[in-house]
């Protein structure tokens, strides 16, 4: 098992696969998932391209958030939640295999939550948290990473003069971008976003969407959204889920203009869901 402490230098188990494997590629194979006796995902097979934005859409309760949380094993925290069949592979490695260090996995697969959850610390400490956790103590390194992450999250100019005020002292949209900056600071390869804009006003939403479009140059992004315009605006691929099944998965333009499935079309045109 790889220890977390030497994060910046090491190549971990997950990346240790051959060079032909594209960084950030996620393969979900015939995945069944259940909370206790209640099965919520049925036979989902999906391949998520690297350096692109993939959106999960579908009505509430269709399992899209559950699937997202399978990708960094966040479901491990829930009693009775388990994968009953199939696998999730990232760059060729089954992330649910017994030898996988879940701590390292989560560092490499970052997550932004629906409700922005800055820590009750200063803005600086929020961003530095992941680095400090990883054992980095050198002040200059942390300073650099904080600035770089806040710049990447398009937040630097707004907060550079008050890095030491509480993370709760900024607006909701800024808080969500702070959470994105925090996730970027540990240099993940994949970023999972669980309805990141659901609590934001249109202006803040536009900023976050713009950010998502920029981030895909470097990161593989998977976003769960209720907002179909959002999926249309910022994703390259869209997967439509209904009642725990993947109904259709295709390029976003194709899904929105010419879906193959009737259910997809009805959902997109607002006839149900």
């Amino acid at each position: 098992m790889v220890s977390v402490v030497e994060m910046p230098e090491k190549t971990s188990q997950i990346t240790a696969s051959g060079p032909e494997v594209r960084r950030g590629l996620i393969e979900i194979k015939q995945l069944d998932f259940a909370y206790g006796d209640h099965q919520v995902l049925h036979d989902v097979t999906l391949s998520i391209a690297p350096r692109a934005v993939t959106a999960f859409i579908g009505p509430s309760g269709c399992g899209k958030t559950t699937l997202l949380r399978c990708l960094n094993r966040m479901n491990d925290l829930i009693d009775g939640a388990r994968i009953t069949r199939g696998s999730v592979e990232i760059e060729g490695i089954d992330i649910n295999a017994p030898g996988v260090d879940v701590v390292d996995l989560r560092r490499r697969v970052g997550m932004v939550f629906q409700k922005s959850n800055p820590f009750p610390k200063s803005i600086y400490d929020n961003v530095a948290y992941g680095l400090r956790i990883a054992g980095i103590t050198k002040r200059t390194l942390i300073d650099e990473a904080v600035e770089r992450s806040l710049r990447s999250a398009a937040l630097w100019d707004e907060v550079k003069d008050r890095l030491h005020v509480s993370g709760y002292g900024i607006s909701g949209g800024q808080q969500q971008r702070l959470c994105i900056a925090r996730a970027l600071a540990v240099e993940p390869e994949i970023i999972l976003m669980d309805e990141p804009c659901s609590a934001l006003d249109p202006i803040a939403t536009a900023k976050v969407e713009e950010l998502i479009r920029q981030l895909k140059q470097q990161y593989t992004i998977v976003i769960v959204t209720h907002n179909m315009q959002q999926a249309g605006r910022c994703s390259d691929h869209t997967a439509f889920f209904y009642l725990g099944r993947l109904i259709e998965f295709d390029g976003t333009a194709k899904i929105f203009s010419n879906p193959r499935q009737r259910q997809t079309e009805e959902y997109i045109t607002g006839r149900f869901g």
């Binding site: 959850n117 009750p120 992941g130 956790i133 540990v186």
Partner: peptide
Amino acid sequence: QGLREGSLALGAS
């Protein structure tokens, strides 16, 4: 719970 999840998602044990 969000604080725990946020921390775990950053690769904290």
